[in-house]
Simulated scan of single mutants.
Amino acid sequence: MRVTLSDEARQLIALFEDETDVAARDCLVDEAFDRLVFVVPAGEMGKAIGPGGRVVRRVEQRVGRSVELVEDADTAADFVANALSPAAVYNVTVSENDSTVAYAEVASEDRGVAIGSDGKTIHRARELAKRHFDVDDVQLT
């Protein structure tokens, strides 16, 4: 699926790339939680974060917002698992009937982490899964 970026998102990706030397694949400007979520290529997460989180903190200072990173994946199931991080996701099943729903199996002790405070982690997973894999909803099991 092709992701359409706003001018603001393109500018933020350019800034992110200048600071991290990582080519972000997407930037979700999440006004509801006053944060930016960058999708980084698989294997580039450590470089984007930097030693002790220094690189991503520098990006946060430049943009004046919280910055979160999600690692890209080839499949919807793997992508949803990455988007729910840092929760431990055991399995993701994608069901395609009238709508496409990803069911993520999360340990009961990690359920709160997968939801996030005020639902921000599950919101991130839903928004990004829709943008990248046309998944209509993400549910925890």
Results as ranks from 00 to 15, higher is better:
residue 6 S to E: 04
residue 8 E to F: 02
residue 9 A to H: 01
residue 10 R to L: 10
residue 11 Q to W: 01
residue 12 L to N: 10
residue 16 F to P: 08
residue 16 F to V: 04
residue 19 E to W: 05
residue 19 E to L: 13
residue 20 T to P: 00
residue 20 T to C: 00
residue 21 D to E: 15
residue 21 D to G: 15
residue 26 D to I: 01
residue 28 L to A: 01
residue 29 V to C: 11
residue 29 V to P: 08
residue 29 V to D: 01
residue 29 V to L: 05
residue 34 D to R: 14
residue 35 R to N: 00
residue 36 L to N: 06
residue 37 V to A: 08
residue 37 V to N: 09
residue 37 V to M: 11
residue 37 V to D: 13
residue 38 F to W: 13
residue 38 F to N: 06
residue 38 F to P: 03
residue 40 V to N: 04
residue 43 G to F: 01
residue 44 E to N: 05
residue 44 E to Y: 05
residue 45 M to N: 05
residue 46 G to P: 11
residue 47 K to E: 04
residue 47 K to N: 08
residue 49 I to Y: 04
residue 49 I to R: 01
residue 51 P to E: 14
residue 51 P to F: 05
residue 52 G to R: 09
residue 52 G to V: 03
residue 52 G to T: 06
residue 53 G to Q: 12
residue 53 G to P: 00
residue 54 R to V: 13
residue 55 V to A: 06
residue 56 V to C: 09
residue 58 R to G: 04
residue 60 E to Y: 10
residue 63 V to G: 00
residue 65 R to I: 03
residue 66 S to G: 09
residue 67 V to M: 02
residue 67 V to Q: 06
residue 67 V to I: 06
residue 68 E to W: 09
residue 70 V to H: 00
residue 70 V to G: 00
residue 70 V to W: 00
residue 72 D to T: 03
residue 72 D to H: 03
residue 73 A to L: 13
residue 75 T to H: 09
residue 78 D to E: 14
residue 78 D to Q: 07
residue 83 A to T: 12
residue 83 A to Q: 09
residue 84 L to K: 11
residue 85 S to R: 14
residue 86 P to K: 03
residue 86 P to S: 05
residue 86 P to H: 01
residue 87 A to H: 10
residue 88 A to H: 15
residue 88 A to Q: 14
residue 88 A to R: 15
residue 90 Y to G: 12
residue 90 Y to E: 15
residue 91 N to S: 12
residue 91 N to E: 15
residue 95 S to Y: 13
residue 96 E to W: 10
residue 96 E to D: 15
residue 97 N to M: 08
residue 97 N to G: 14
residue 101 V to S: 12
residue 103 Y to E: 15
residue 103 Y to R: 15
residue 104 A to E: 06
residue 104 A to V: 03
residue 105 E to V: 07
residue 107 A to P: 11
residue 107 A to N: 07
residue 108 S to M: 15
residue 108 S to F: 15
residue 108 S to Q: 15
residue 109 E to M: 12
residue 109 E to D: 12
residue 110 D to L: 06
residue 110 D to V: 10
residue 114 A to L: 09
residue 114 A to V: 10
residue 114 A to Q: 11
residue 115 I to S: 04
residue 116 G to C: 04
residue 116 G to H: 14
residue 117 S to T: 07
residue 119 G to N: 13
residue 120 K to N: 13
residue 121 T to H: 03
residue 121 T to Y: 00
residue 122 I to L: 13
residue 125 A to V: 05
residue 127 E to G: 03
residue 127 E to Y: 02
residue 127 E to P: 01
residue 130 K to T: 06
residue 131 R to A: 13
residue 131 R to D: 07
residue 131 R to T: 09
residue 133 F to Q: 14
residue 135 V to P: 04
residue 136 D to V: 06
residue 136 D to H: 08
residue 137 D to G: 09
residue 137 D to H: 07
residue 138 V to W: 04
residue 138 V to T: 05
residue 138 V to F: 01
residue 139 Q to G: 02
residue 140 L to V: 09
residue 141 T to P: 03
